[in-house]
């Protein structure tokens, strides 16, 4: 079964940066959402293997998305890609079940390393 990935960020530039940073051997259909609510709508209609999630967003922020994923017991892996790098925030997303935290602007090597660490490539 093929993997579907979701990039959730309110910035077009940030979504493009993540998309361009994905390694070539990352064989997945890539969807995008421009805020947390859009992401939840997508997550409730189809199976998403991995979510690349921003934290600071309008409508519903990344914390809200993580809480909803946890409450709905979805199996999606979440990799947070955020500018909000406060230690307290990193701790909070880890507690809410995020696999990894990547500081913005996203570094392709770091992304590659995390994807391979979790067997996603």
């Amino acid at each position: 079964m093929s993997l579907t990935a979701l990039i959730c960020d309110d910035s077009v530039l940030a979504r493009k940066q993540v998309k361009k940073s994905l390694p070539e051997n990352f064989a997945a259909t890539v969807l995008t959402a421009s805020n947390g609510q859009e992401a939840l709508d997508i997550l409730s209609t189809q199976e998403i293997g991995v979510v690349f999630l921003d934290l600071t967003m309008p409508e519903l922020d990344g914390i809200g998305v993580l809480e909803a994923i946890k409450a709905r017991q979805l199996k999606s892996c979440v990799i947070v890609i955020s500018a909000d790098i406060q230690p307290e925030m990193q701790k909070r997303v880890a507690e809410l079940g995020a696999l990894a935290f990547i500081q913005k602007p996203v570094n392709p090597d770091k992304l590659n390393q995390i994807l391979s660490q979790y067997g996603l490539i």
Binding site: S11, A14, T56, S82, D84, I85, Q86, K104
Partner: peptide, 12 residues
């Protein structure tokens, strides 16, 4: 987005 990154550094 650039502001967002800069704001993240400052608030950290």
């Amino acid at each position: 987005e650039l502001m967002n990154v800069a704001m993240g550094m400052a608030s950290d």
